[in-house]
Design a protein around this nucleic acid. Structure first.
Lengths: 233, 233
DNA sequence: TCAAAAGTGTTCAAGCTACACCCATGA
DNA sequence: TCATGGGTGTAGCTTGAACACTTTTGA
């Protein structure tokens, strides 16, 4: 016998993903140009609805996969947006996820939805509904989390140099970091493995190429970087 | 003309509240004994459903008020639980909130729902559904947040002594803290105002009674306590 | 006058910040 | 040979941890 709860009403549940990437020296967002109403033609976060036989984590992975063809991406639930009028079509809750993607590793952009585009955070257009608010929230969380946990590596390619990694943190915190202190701090974590290779792109002295020590990464227990910019969160 | 989204299905949305309090030296949870099915007679978090004309913050406040008669309580959205089978009656998402209540200030327990009870975290019974998981999550968040922001004061009465405040942090982190260093750190924040009063309950030397500097509190910008226990989160 | 709790100050070590010099590379 | 970017070392300061002595109070 199947009971149900009385005097309750059901609501549509959406998922929207704030997807960060890092290329060269720029922190980027993966945005989509809407090809359906409402707000057709405008930019938005990638989204979708929660299906009948899936939980939110599964749905968010499905949505990300449908957009990018990527699996095994770092994703985390952020916050639920629930203003009654946030979606003009009908009442919809949106569970916001944030994802970190390594752009370089995934150069086969063939799989990328043609309506999707990587856009620098600095050039972010106005987004639909409350999506700007979601991006702001996600950015704050990224700043917070990246100082406590080494999740920044999720945005880096498999092989990278320390100066390149530093550019990532400078982009995240929109701040200058001392080269020498940064290098010292990063190396002290023992999270980097020297591959023996040298960066061939560089015009001048070739930087050492490192890989992430993935075992140490998953076990990492200490607070990560302690940037002055963070102390006034 | 009212559009709707096609091929989507709606879901019941609940709110469950992890409510912390602090009394004497004990961190407590406000739990309710269920007087309805399913799981009648078992302990659970206080919950309710999201109504048609309210957002989640409003609903969580409504639910807390209905349980305690209290308003203006510190509340924060934590996480959404969405396993398809988490509620045996029918599929329900639960948005978990966590709340911090100052028990002493609210001694008029008349307003407290008769099915509700403050129970020490140490004596927490097994809760229904995934509520144990919610409590574990909330506790972790409390530990995290209390080290970064001075939210611990939300659990204290208006007037308190430093040794009493220390007991709170010792309860939260389940750790011993050095009296002298704690006092120094707390006073350095300038968040305390000396009321000039002395604690009359004490049997021996009377401790100084302080009040929170509420202006400074709302503006507080720095990371709060840096407890060693936190470094291995 | 003694035990228990409260209040305060000092010392040492670690970590972070600021800063300077040397090396490798290609134009 | 020079400009550019990469790699490393050190001194000084700040912060936090460990720790001891004095005061107040009531029994």
């Amino acid at each position: 016998m199947l009971q149900t709860y009385k005097n309750t009403h059901k609501i549509l549940v959406a998922i929207d993903c704030v997807i960060f990437g890092f290329e060269q020296t720029e922190l980027k967002l993966l945005l989509v140009k809407r090809n359906f109403e409402p707000e057709m033609g405008k930019w938005s976060l990638m989204g979708g609805f929660l299906g009948e036989n899936e939980n939110l984590d599964k749905a968010s992975k499905r949505i990300l996969f449908s957009l990018t063809g990527l699996e095994n991406i770092y994703m985390e639930q952020l916050y639920v947006y629930s203003e009654t009028n946030r979606d003009p079509v009908e009442r919809t809750l949106s569970v916001c996820y944030f994802a970190l993607i390594n752009i370089q590793n995934n150069e086969n952009e063939a799989r990328l939805n043609p309506n999707a585009q990587w856009i620098s955070l600095k050039d972010k257009p106005k987004l639909i509904f409350d999506h700007d608010q979601m991006v702001a929230h996600a950015l704050k969380t990224l700043k917070n989390k990246a100082s406590m946990h080494p999740i920044g590596f999720e945005l880096m390619p498999d092989k990278f140099t320390i100066p390149h990694l530093q550019k990532l943190y400078e982009a995240i915190y929109d701040a200058q970091i001392d080269r020498r202190n940064f290098s010292k701090t990063i190396l002290a974590t023992k999270l980097l493995i020297d591959t023996g290779e040298k960066n061939t792109n560089s015009v001048t002295k070739k930087a050492t190429v490192y890989q992430l020590n993935k075992e140490k990464y998953t076990q990492y227990q200490y607070s990560f970087l302690n940037l002055p910019t963070l102390k006034t969160l």
